[in-house]
């Protein structure tokens, strides 16, 4: 079914392509939303990604998974856009963050803020915290922890080795947690 739709889409049939992407639309949109951090950009970017996919579907290799391929395009489109806006985006990535001192601050607190806050608030806080990660870090965290993909799948989507996925994920999570702690302490 899917291969037939792909075949038709390669021939330029819009309806087939729409049918093909109908189950991935929402994921594409959500990936874009997590990457961009707001609905407006998420809409623009996810649509751009889908159009890009439509134009480039001839280059899609059959042995690969269509969804994986689609998500890779989505993430790349978002990354490109963010790079373009780089001057406005502040990165709180691990590399350029004085992590040690931040942790020290937290350790002084006798209570553990994360456990005190309600989950709902926490989710909102995580959303804002996510936006402060770098694109690459965000991509792995979103794919793994929000959308639940395996290391291997993430490796294929992002086109990086599994080892890199693992280390990047660990680093990104620690960074995210640090950001969270700072945010929660400020609240």
């Amino acid at each position: 079914m899917e291969s037939m739709l792909i075949e038709k889409s390669i021939q330029g049939d819009v309806a087939s392509f729409e049918q093909l992407i109908v189950k991935y639309n929402r994921y594409v949109y959500n990936i874009a939303f997590r990457m961009m951090g707001n609905e407006e950009d998420a809409k623009d970017m996810s649509q751009e990604a889908l159009i890009k996919a439509f134009k480039a579907i001839g280059q899609f290799k059959r042995e690969a998974n269509f969804s994986t391929w689609l998500y890779r395009i989505t993430i790349n489109v978002c990354k490109d856009e963010m790079r373009k806006r780089k001057e406005h985006v502040l990165s709180y990535d691990v590399e350029n963050q004085d992590e040690g001192s931040m942790k020290e601050n937290i350790k002084d607190e006798s209570t553990n803020p994360i456990l005190i806050y309600e989950q709902l608030e926490l989710k909102e806080t995580i959303e804002t915290a996510l936006n402060k990660l770098s694109e690459d870090s965000k991509a792995v965290v979103v794919l793994k922890d929000l959308l639940g993909y395996s290391y291997e799948e993430i490796g294929t989507i992002l086109d990086i080795p599994v080892g890199t996925v693992r280390s990047r994920l660990n680093r990104s999570r620690s960074a995210l947690k640090s950001i969270l702690q700072v945010q929660l302490a400020e609240q």
Partner: peptide, 29 residues
């Protein structure tokens, strides 16, 4: 903390597509 954070993130819901999303996409396609 890590376990809790991962758990909460796993429970974050997927966002619904905005209204008119598919129509707009159709036009662009």
């Amino acid at each position: 903390e890590l376990k809790y954070m991962i758990q909460v993130m796993g429970e974050m819901d997927l966002k619904e597509l905005p209204i008119g999303y598919e129509e707009e996409l159709h036009q662009k396609l």
